[in-house]
Simulated scan of single mutants.
Amino acid sequence: MYLDTQPLRAERAQPAARPAGSEDREMLRQAALLTRDLHIPSARIYWTDCFGSAAIGYAALIGAMVADHWWSMLLFATLSVLALYRAVLFIHEITHLDHAKLPGFRIAWNLAVGMPLLLPSFLYEGIHAVHHSRAHYGTVNDPEYLPLARMRPWTLPLFTLAAIFMPLLLLVRFGIVGPLSWFDPRVRSAVVSRFSALEVNPGYIRPLPTGDFARRWRWQEAGTSFVAIAILGALAFGILPPAAFAIYCAVHAGVATLNQTRTLVAHLWENDGAQLSLTDQYRDSTNVPPVFPGMLWAPVGLRFHALHHLLPRLPYHSLAEAHRRISAALPADSAYGQANYASLGELVTRLVRATMRPRG
């Protein structure tokens, strides 16, 4: 992939440039002061939202499998994609939660959502923490970052459409390659380092897990492999009809594609690999405050992704209120306002234009 190291042209009016790596101290101070009372996760909201969404998603999935007409199948499948997508995105919350304040949530999520959809939380835990590191964000060591704005235009559809193959890749990972790797240390090393992370950066090599995380990894992987083998076995022996399997894969691919589209606009992807200050990380991330349709394509607080990078421990249900308070307290031309955008379409257009810039 060709990388352009020339600075990106600004597409909106910007205040006077600050020195590289500078911090907007007032923004950081106000963000901390104004949200001190918003850091307690609500067990009622987490449990009801997550598992209510999962229940709706699975019911709609079954509805799609037994539907008599194509239009009702499509309607149920769409509802299933949206509801299961919302439930799946709680994997992001799991990586940031103080689990002492929400006991049992990670286990329940893995049993009800992660394992049935072949997305156990170990695929994201640890990975996402590196992405939030001041030392690693936007660098070659960041598993969740690629300088997409500096790449060729064809990388964007390739990046998005690759998600279509996720359900099949996960079935192979957990139903075939993963179990085989338990008997061969060399294969196991490759599976852990290269095929055990929800990552954006294909060059990222995951280290071996240790301690409590290694124990969680083992039971999550074993349970997910059981599900994958059961699906493949049921398909092979005619217990699971091919049409039902195709609908399961289509809904799963829909969830993955929707998430990949959201990921495409979560950042501006403009960093050239240098280390960034927290404020500059914020500017390279995005908020899309309008509730609709943001609540569909960026649920569970992810339409406030830039704010999340400022306050990563803030529960998702507090982000809208935090955004309201900070926006009211800071002037419109502050660093905080620079990460706010009107729509998904605006961000996609900006990114496409960035990839089409002349390169010398």
Results as ranks from 00 to 15, higher is better:
residue 67 A to V: 10
residue 251 V to R: 03
residue 318 S to K: 08
residue 173 R to Y: 05
residue 78 T to F: 10
residue 135 A to L: 15
residue 280 D to M: 13
residue 136 H to P: 01
residue 172 V to Q: 11
residue 342 A to V: 10
residue 178 G to A: 10
residue 264 L to Y: 03
residue 11 E to Q: 12
residue 358 P to Y: 07
residue 127 I to M: 14
residue 127 I to E: 11
residue 330 L to T: 00
residue 117 L to M: 15
residue 352 V to D: 12
residue 104 G to R: 13
residue 24 D to Y: 05
residue 181 S to T: 06
residue 337 G to E: 09
residue 160 T to S: 11
residue 31 A to C: 09
residue 212 D to N: 10
residue 158 L to M: 15
residue 330 L to E: 07
residue 129 A to V: 12
residue 112 A to V: 14
residue 216 R to C: 10
residue 46 Y to H: 09
residue 218 R to I: 13
residue 240 L to R: 02
residue 350 R to D: 10
residue 342 A to P: 00
residue 214 A to Y: 07
residue 172 V to P: 02
residue 355 T to V: 06
residue 41 P to L: 08
residue 17 A to T: 11
residue 239 I to K: 10
residue 161 L to N: 03
residue 72 S to L: 12
residue 108 A to F: 04
residue 39 H to K: 11
residue 343 S to Y: 08
residue 210 T to K: 12
residue 94 I to P: 07
residue 97 L to W: 06
residue 274 A to C: 14
residue 314 L to T: 00
residue 71 W to V: 15
residue 148 L to S: 02
residue 137 Y to N: 03
residue 73 M to L: 11
residue 324 R to N: 13
residue 334 S to Q: 07
residue 349 T to I: 09
residue 131 H to G: 05
residue 96 H to F: 06
residue 74 L to P: 06
residue 146 L to P: 01
residue 358 P to W: 09
residue 30 Q to F: 05
residue 240 L to M: 11
residue 240 L to D: 06
residue 357 R to A: 12
residue 237 F to P: 02
residue 188 R to T: 03
residue 60 A to Y: 00
residue 184 D to G: 00
residue 135 A to P: 03
residue 1 M to T: 14
residue 311 L to I: 10
residue 332 A to D: 13
